Amino acid sequence: MTLGDYLKQQRTEQTLSQAELAEKMGVEQSYLSKLEAERSLPSAEILTAWLTALELELDDVLAHLDRAYLHAKLARIPSIDAWLRQQKVQSLVRERIRLYAAVLCIAVAVPMFYLGYTKLLFDESIYEYESPGVVLPGEPQDIFALAPQLQNGSLSERHQAHVDILKRRDPKIRLLQDYRGAQFSQAIPEAPNDGFTRTYYLEKTHQRARWPNTLLQALGLFIGTAGAVLLMALLRKPKR
């Protein structure tokens, strides 16, 4: 569609005759006929009068016309040439923004995927600690492990002491996400005083999948793919 065709269509939709529109523009009807048939190109002043008479904006009109046609036929009109230059600048700015966005996506996606894959941010280790029983006030924290070496007296006395320790055994297991060393002691809140404790020993280390790591990997993969696709599209885009 040409400029003349489009503005003629707008005149028709506004139910204006050529004579009426020509009068509003301040030109001869024959000249307006040439403009609509594009046998003559308007000057910047005539184009402004034409658009004003139809109550149209230049941006809205040119947006409906093919860009190649504008460059080939109408670029000699200063206002249209300025519009084309402005559109080119805006296009370059948008392209630069898309390029930065693509690079940013890739830059964010790589460490995001790496953190999820290596579990550096959200450790998946579960530490299993076991306490053999309650340590009484004044006893060594590792009384259950050292009991055989701490006993004195006859064989029967040592045997009885060993049996007593076995009777006191009350194993308790705790699964923790934070590592507390090979062993740690903890007071028993429900005990009558602070002298009653439990000593927990590290028995095993388990691995348990955590959804934040899976989410980081999925987001990293998605964002990285989107950035790569956008970057490839920009690189393949023909230069104008």
Rank of each mutant, 00 (worst) to 15 (best):
M1S: 11
Q10S: 08
R11T: 03
E13F: 13
S17C: 05
L21M: 06
E23I: 11
M25S: 04
G26V: 07
Y31D: 06
L32N: 01
L32V: 03
L35I: 11
I46L: 07
I46C: 05
I46M: 11
I46A: 08
A49Y: 13
L51V: 06
T52M: 06
L56I: 13
E57A: 13
L58G: 00
D59T: 14
H64R: 15
K73H: 09
L74N: 03
R76W: 04
Q87D: 04
Q90S: 08
S91Y: 11
S91A: 12
V93Y: 05
E95I: 13
R98K: 07
R98Q: 09
L99C: 10
Y100V: 15
I106L: 04
F113A: 14
G116P: 03
K119S: 13
F122K: 06
Y127R: 05
E130K: 11
G133L: 11
G138Q: 04
F144L: 04
A145V: 15
L146V: 14
P148C: 07
Q151N: 03
S154Y: 02
S154D: 05
L166S: 08
R168E: 03
K172V: 13
D178N: 11
G181P: 02
S185M: 08
N193M: 10
N193H: 06
T197C: 09
Y201A: 04
K204N: 14
H206C: 05
R208K: 14
N213D: 06
N213L: 06
L216F: 09
G220D: 00
L221W: 07
A226L: 15
L230R: 11
M232S: 09
